[in-house]
Simulated scan of single mutants.
Amino acid sequence: MNNLKKKLGLALALTLSTATFATAYATSEPETAQTADVHVNSIRNDESTSDRIEKYKEMAMYYYWHGGDIKQAEEEIFKGITLKGKYDVVENAFKAASSLDPYDLDLKFSLASTQIIQKKTAEALETYNQILNLDPNHFNANLLYGVYSKVNGDHASYKKAISKLKQIDAKKANEYLQKLETTESIIKEKLNTSAPSNLPQKDHAIVILGYALADDGSMREPLIERLKAGLAIAKQYPNSKIIVTGGVPKKGITEADAMSSWLISQGIEKDRIILENKSTDTVENALFTTEKLVKDGIRDVTLVTSASHMRRALTVFKEASDFYDKMTGESSERNFTNVVYLDYPSIEEAHEVSKDEIFVICRDLFRTSGIWQYPDLQR
């Protein structure tokens, strides 16, 4: 920990103290031009290789969360490379770090993850292939290379990867095949625009997923629409608990805080509402909420989110629930139903699943299963 603080301090010493940066990072507030400049100006070739690698990793994670001065990064660090957005900075930071240490497979894995985020499938598959050339028994790289190849239409590479996974660890390979089979079933599930009529009257919770707040802390339309859908179910099932989940603060207000206040203003009793206000994305929504489901003995869950988000949400909540069952040694047999805010022109269009959506669903399934997209840095 002391070494990490020292390295972070070096990266920020020019214009910002480590304490100031830690506060900005923890609260996820919009960055200023000053904080963006820190990451660009702090990497110099007269520093040790390890320090430069750490600073590239720190730059990558900072831009992953906050964005920054793209033009300055383009002109001062990644000369000759046109950057189109914050993930370009993340990608090129990991490329630079990997060039400094081509033996570090975690850096290559992080690079591939960023390429997947940007829908650069061919580039990501090539990066995974580099990892496998160096370590043919790398379980996670084989898994992701195989599954993403299949989504991309390359079934031969998928079959080859699965065969290799079974050689490496047959039990673990079969567990992932079961997860993928479950996910395929979820993708085919019907999306409901209103609550089913037969939901349990006991040990049931309505889980409303958050959506990023505006910079002033106000709720955007998708979040308000999700809340309206959740409120309708809450009125129909007055004995059900309501869990609001989302932790990224804006102006000191988390999504869960804002959601709770809105529900209370609509007549929902405060003691019905459970706040999950630590999560930063869908995967953490699922993991942190499931912990609360276990604690409260809740067996049945109705997820509420946008139609475009529901299949991914169901996938990660099912995976998180299975993980907690495994960890606690219990079989909750937790049942998930769904109600969506329809953010498509029609329900028929909502049921059409694109290749891009399947990529994102698989990515978050793997993250929920314990495979960090940025090893040791970010789930």
Rank of each mutant, 00 (worst) to 15 (best):
S261C: 00
A124V: 05
S17E: 12
A11H: 07
I243W: 07
M259Y: 02
T27K: 10
T49H: 00
W262L: 03
V294W: 09
E75Y: 10
H66I: 01
H351W: 07
R334F: 11
E184D: 06
T18G: 04
T289N: 08
L213D: 15
Y176C: 05
A161N: 02
T121G: 01
F336M: 09
T82M: 02
A173L: 01
A258M: 02
E54C: 00
L303Y: 05
K172R: 11
S194V: 01
S157H: 09
V151H: 10
E31V: 11
A19D: 13
I168G: 03
F317D: 09
A13H: 12
G370M: 06
I70H: 05
I274S: 10
N129M: 06
G210C: 10
T127N: 10
A33Q: 10
T32S: 15
Y87E: 07
S98Y: 02
R220D: 08
T245H: 04
L231H: 15
T282L: 05
L342P: 12
H204F: 05
R220T: 15
V89N: 10
F109M: 10
L83K: 00
N192M: 11
L223F: 02
K190W: 03
Q236W: 12
V207C: 07
D37Q: 11
V207Q: 09
V207T: 07
I243E: 02
D69W: 08
L111S: 12
K172M: 07
Q236R: 14
K108L: 15
K164W: 00
G146V: 04
A170N: 09
R334E: 11
E276L: 09
T182M: 05
A22N: 08
F109T: 01
E31W: 14
T35A: 02
K120S: 07
D104F: 00
K5D: 14
L144V: 01
N285P: 02
A350K: 01
D88E: 10
S157M: 06
E58F: 12
S218R: 12
K171G: 07
P136F: 11
R379Q: 06
L16D: 06
D215A: 15
A350H: 04
Y324W: 13
L263S: 09
F94S: 04
A258P: 02
I233W: 13
A234C: 08
V38T: 11
A234S: 14
K84G: 01
S308D: 06
Y103M: 14
V304H: 07
Q373W: 12
W262I: 00
A205E: 02
L143A: 08
D215W: 03
L213H: 14
R226M: 14
K228W: 05
A195G: 07
D37L: 08
Y211R: 13
E357P: 06
T32D: 07
T368P: 01
S240M: 03
A122I: 12
K84M: 01
L177F: 00
I274C: 08
I70A: 04
S279I: 00
D69E: 13
V89P: 13
D322V: 07
V340A: 10
R226S: 12
R44Q: 08
Q266S: 00
D325W: 11
